[in-house]
């Protein structure tokens, strides 16, 4: 199953439309989407405007591939559950967000294995076809939680000082 999620702040019609049109030529794929009141209603996708925290986590874990806006919550979850993820940054000029910070986020995270950044509909179509034709799509094992440990340790020592 492919789980498509656009977060809870704004809809993201461009992404939903793109996945829906990919399904025209890939009808066997199963897709579930959380669309946040998208004006475009997908024709080939099971969709929800919103999913509660638990339902959301369940779908995320069930999926073999995640397709998402470039929101940090979903990127971090992809790390946690080791799910390969396609991210499309929102663009303020299309009214998809207040600013273009998702483009900056994508530039950084796009260099990490398991995260695929797509900037256009064509790139989205290509990435979906390429990843779904692979036998197994994997999110590589990572060994870099030391930055988190460092942050936790630093907060702890800040608290002790007080």
């Amino acid at each position: 199953m492919i789980f498509v999620t656009v977060g809870t702040q704004f809809p993201f019609d461009r992404l939903i439309k793109g996945v829906d049109s990919w399904l025209n030529s890939n009808q066997s794929a199963e897709v579930v989407a959380q669309i946040c009141h998208s004006a475009y209603l997908p024709k080939r996708i099971v969709f929800y405007d919103f999913l509660g925290a638990k339902e959301f986590d369940d779908k995320f874990q069930e999926a073999e591939l995640i397709v998402s806006h470039a929101g940090m919550g979903n990127i971090l979850k992809a790390f946690d559950y080791r799910k390969p993820i396609i991210i499309m940054p929102r663009r303020s000029e299309f009214g998809e967000h207040r600013n273009n910070h998702q483009i900056d986020t994508s530039k950084y995270f796009g260099s990490i294995d398991g995260i695929e950044v797509v900037n256009s509909d064509q790139e989205l179509q290509d990435a979906l076809s390429r990843l779904m034709s692979q036998q197994q799509i994997e999110f590589p094992e990572r060994n870099d939680s030391c930055e988190l440990e460092k942050l936790i340790d630093n907060i702890r020592s800040f608290l002790r000082e007080g």
């Binding site: 809870t8 919550g73 979903n74 971090l76």
Partner: peptide, 16 residues
Amino acid sequence: SFGGHWVQLRRLESAF
């Protein structure tokens, strides 16, 4: 707030 901020906040829990 809910979303990415929430996910990041939860990761700090062990500091407390």
